[in-house]
Design a protein around this nucleic acid. Structure first.
Lengths: 204, 204
DNA sequence: AATCGGATGTGACAGTTGTCATGCAGAGGT
DNA sequence: ACCTCTGCATGACAACTGTCACATCCGATT
């Protein structure tokens, strides 16, 4: 028998981390050598242990999974990264691939796919959630400008045009113009709807 | 040796569900007899299998964990329910306890606490996340009426007063009145802000 | 040099939202 | 019966929001 695949796991919810670890440890050909609670911890573990595969969540404190992937791409190119996340957002997938990730897996896929994905990625293959890959193929690009994004974020948090204008040193009319533009671009019916849509696409 | 504790698990993210199941199955005195993907499935599984303990997430499609707990309290009072969730919201905890839950556990607690909590609850004890319990002690009560909650939910999704009025068979003025009330009660500056505040407290 | 897109601004207008006073009907408590 | 609370409603007014037409400035592309 060949040596097991050595895996580092990164996930900020301790119980989910422990559970995923238990799940992978059930596989005789896979060995979880470190459980990291955030991206920073994972980065240092990878440096010390040089695993074969890294499985990481995206939204974590200190360092996100996407930042981690981007970092490892240059510092440890031999380590193959799988992003494991709740979010089926084409914007995230795009960023993950740009960061050199070899896999993008959703937490609502069956548990068996995790080990299988680790094996595939270890063999040098790519594993992209099929539904999301299809969607990303013809997904619109982010139509928002940087200003529109800034303003939409704040509007989505319940700030008024006046407050946003003050905060960003703009006139109130300008803020309303940007929001109107964003609403039109996203086909939304008001600022809140627009913020919601942008969030689900991973553009905020 | 006594018979193992029979557990039904409910969690909508399949991979997390499988992983938690694997984690509990590692314990010799615990046996996971059903994995449910939502509250409705869990409800029927409990009816068929009458487990000792139910471990359930809150936010799930078709039926939330809180609704499930409330339902089981009367239909199957012998089944002890543990809520396992990401959200440290005192409003959720309060609703969970009102719904007859015996445990409220956060997903960012160590993995070992899950099995331990199952055992304690099975022995008839309560298990409440200590930090959250302390916070809930002096947390404000939910000031919203049922109508206000319904309307605030929809407003927070970007629906206009008119749309909400049509959907709920109310007049537009009434919808605005309820929103105005909710905004005042929550000390918010507009409907969006109000929805945001209510959500972070677990009142939506 | 000419053009274009992005960032910024103004002014005007219509539509939506937030507030308040006030009213009415039904459910419960005294 | 009487009172009070809650849910629902209306109307009026002020404030906020969304849209549009138009204008200026700047940097990048052609």
């Amino acid at each position: 028998m060949t040596a097991p695949i050595r895996v580092v796991l990164a996930e900020d919810q301790a119980m989910v981390l422990g559970a995923l670890s238990a799940l992978l440890e059930l596989e005789p050909d896979i060995s979880v050598i470190f459980n990291a609670a955030n991206g920073r911890e994972a980065l240092s573990a990878v440096g010390r242990l040089t695993p074969d595969v890294l499985v990481t969540d995206i939204e974590m404190p200190l360092m996100t999974g996407l930042e981690l992937a981007a970092n490892l791409r240059t510092s440890h190119p031999a380590v193959r990264t799988i992003i494991l996340t709740t979010f089926a957002r084409s914007g995230y997938l795009r960023r993950a691939l740009d960061a050199g990730a070899r896999g993008y897996l959703l937490k609502d896929r069956p548990a068996a796919e995790l080990a299988e994905s680790v094996r595939r990625v270890h063999r040098g293959l790519r594993v992209i959630d099929p539904a999301l890959a299809a969607e990303a193929w013809n997904a619109e690009l982010d139509p928002l400008t940087e200003r529109e994004r800034q303003i939409l974020q704040r509007a989505g948090d319940g700030r008024s045009s006046t407050e946003i204008a003050t905060e960003l040193h703009l006139s109130e009319g300008t803020v309303r113009n940007y929001l109107s533009e964003a609403i039109a671009k996203l086909g939304a019916s008001n600022r809140i709807d627009a913020a919601r849509i942008a969030r689900t696409k991973g553009w905020l």
